[in-house]
Simulated scan of single mutants.
Amino acid sequence: MSDQDPHILDGAISPARNPHLFGHHAAEDFLSASYKTGKGHHAILIEGPEGIGKATLAFRFANHVLSHPEPESAPDHIADPDPDSAVSRQIASGASHNLLHLSRPVDEKTGKMKTAITVDEVRRAGHFFSQTSGTGNWRIVIIDAADDLNRNAANAILKILEEPPRRALFFVLSHAPGRLLPTIRSRCQPLRLSPLSDADLASALAALGSPLDGGKTEEMVLTQSKGSVAQALKLLNYGGADIISAFDDAVSADGPAARKAMHRLADVLAGKDSDVIFGFFLEHLSDHLVKRAREAALSGDLATADRRAKLVSDMTEKLKIAQAYNLDRKQTLMSILESARLA
Rank of each mutant, 00 (worst) to 15 (best):
Met1Ser: 13
Gln4Met: 15
Gln4Arg: 15
Gly11Ser: 13
Ala16Ser: 15
Asn18Pro: 08
Glu28Gln: 15
Asp29Pro: 04
Leu31His: 06
Tyr35Leu: 10
His42Asn: 08
Ala43Asp: 05
Ile44Gly: 00
Glu50Asn: 03
Lys54Met: 02
Thr56Ile: 08
Ala58Asn: 02
Ala58Gln: 01
Ser67Asn: 06
Pro69Gln: 07
Ser73Arg: 10
Ser73Thr: 14
His77Asp: 05
His77Pro: 03
Ser85Cys: 08
Ala86Ile: 14
Ala92Trp: 06
Asn98Glu: 02
Ser103Gly: 02
Ser103Arg: 08
Pro105Phe: 05
Met113Gly: 04
Lys114His: 03
Thr115Asp: 08
Thr115Ser: 09
Arg123Tyr: 03
Ala125Trp: 09
Gln131Ser: 13
Gly134Ser: 13
Thr135Gly: 10
Ile143Gln: 02
Ala145Met: 03
Asp148Phe: 02
Arg151Phe: 12
Ala154Cys: 09
Ala156Leu: 05
Leu158Ala: 07
Ser174Tyr: 03
Gly178Gln: 11
Arg179Pro: 00
Cys188Arg: 09
Leu193Trp: 11
Ser203Asp: 14
Ser203Met: 15
Ala204Ile: 12
Ala204His: 10
Leu205Met: 12
Ser210Thr: 15
Leu212Arg: 10
Gly215Phe: 08
Thr217Ala: 09
Glu218Gly: 05
Glu219Ser: 10
Lys226Pro: 00
Leu236Met: 12
Asn237Pro: 01
Gly239Met: 08
Val251Asn: 02
Gly255Met: 04
Arg259Met: 11
Lys260Cys: 00
Asp267Arg: 05
Leu269Gln: 00
Gly271Trp: 00
Lys272Phe: 00
Ser274Leu: 02
Ser274Ala: 09
Asp275Tyr: 01
Asp275Cys: 00
Gly279Ser: 04
Glu283Leu: 03
Asp287Tyr: 04
Val290Tyr: 05
Ala296Met: 11
Ala296Leu: 12
Ala297Ile: 06
Gly300Pro: 06
Lys310His: 14
Lys310Asp: 13
Lys320Ala: 13
Lys320Arg: 14
Gln323Leu: 13
Tyr325Trp: 13
Asp328Ser: 14
Arg329Ile: 15
